[in-house]
Amino acid sequence: MSAADQIIVQIQTSKGLCVSPAWLNNFLSSSTQRNIPASALTKTALFRVLASDFRESLSRNSTSVLPNDVYDPNIRERRLQGPIPVQILDIEDIGASLWSQVEAIERVERGESIRGREIVRTINVGEDAEAAENNGTGATGNTNSSGTSGSGAHRLTLQDSAGTKVVAIEMQRIEGLTLDKLSIGAKFLLRGVIVARGMLLLDPGCATLLGGKIEALDKPWKDGRKARLLEKISAMEAEETTSNSVRSR
């Protein structure tokens, strides 16, 4: 068995991911490291896969991708056996109000966090500020770069290796699924997931978080999160104004 075949088998066995031979051969040919142990090479390949776009790095078949009509609201309920690897394109904390999330982001921008009923300064000038920024926490360890504890529940937009997108809802708490810990492009492996009215219902029994991120998607998403929240608030206020105007006639 070739080195490429060994890596494919090991990643599929350990993580349930079927790596594309073409992608892996390109990875191996571009690697500057030589004569390294196969185990180390496999770990490096897995890291690169989790940091990649699944549409480029994975092979796919009928059971490893979402149905083309997965988002059809006319289908009451069905179960997808999988395993189906997907990547996160968007995540929303639907357990907190939009304004509270904006305020949390602004506290981080000011270098503050909340401890009990107190507002605590968490970032100092100079080296302390740089360290706090790099660690994603302040002096008290209560803040994070997302501006929220991200306790959920969460609504996610997921994408499979064929490019099909679907909305998913966290029905039960999934470890690691928080705005402060998760990156855009992070990967899930779905097994036996239920789809109800075009929406995936996630719980720890059907969704395994693999980690990873897509750098080109993650930074713009984080940088634009406050603007998106404010846009939603404005849209909701405009809709409410219109509704009140119609009722008053």
Rank of each mutant, 00 (worst) to 15 (best):
V193T: 04
N124Q: 13
K222Y: 02
A162P: 02
E118L: 10
S97Y: 02
A162S: 05
L80V: 06
R249S: 08
D128E: 12
A104M: 08
S20V: 04
R117D: 11
E106D: 12
T143Q: 12
V195Y: 02
I75K: 03
I88W: 00
G176Q: 05
I114H: 07
I75Y: 02
A139Y: 15
G150K: 09
I214K: 00
L179S: 12
A196H: 14
A216E: 08
I123K: 05
G152K: 12
F47Y: 07
Q10D: 12
D218P: 01
A40W: 14
E77S: 13
G147Y: 03
F188T: 06
E118A: 13
R107T: 05
G16F: 01
T178F: 02
T143M: 15
Q12A: 15
V246Q: 07
G116E: 01
R247K: 14
K15P: 12
G211L: 00
S64M: 06
G147Q: 05
N144H: 07
L200I: 02
P37V: 14
I105M: 10
F27Q: 00
M1L: 09
A235W: 09
P37T: 15
T63K: 13
N124L: 15
A227T: 07
T178A: 14
A51N: 14
V108K: 10
T242W: 12
R76K: 12
E170Y: 01
I75G: 03
E127Q: 10
V108A: 11
L210R: 00
A162W: 03
F54I: 13
S31D: 12
Q81K: 11
P37K: 15
S248D: 13
M199W: 05
S146I: 09
L80K: 01
I84Q: 04
Y71L: 11
R121D: 02
S145F: 12
K181E: 04
A196M: 15
G224S: 11
G138T: 01
A168D: 03
Y71K: 08
T208A: 09
K219A: 03
V193I: 05
D90R: 10
W221C: 00
A45P: 01
D5K: 12
S97V: 05
G212E: 00
A40P: 09
W221N: 01
R55I: 05
L217R: 02
A129G: 15
G152I: 11
R197L: 12
S183N: 08
F54G: 07
S29P: 11
G141H: 05
V108S: 09
P220V: 02
P83T: 06
F47I: 11
G147H: 04
E239H: 09
S248K: 09
F47S: 07
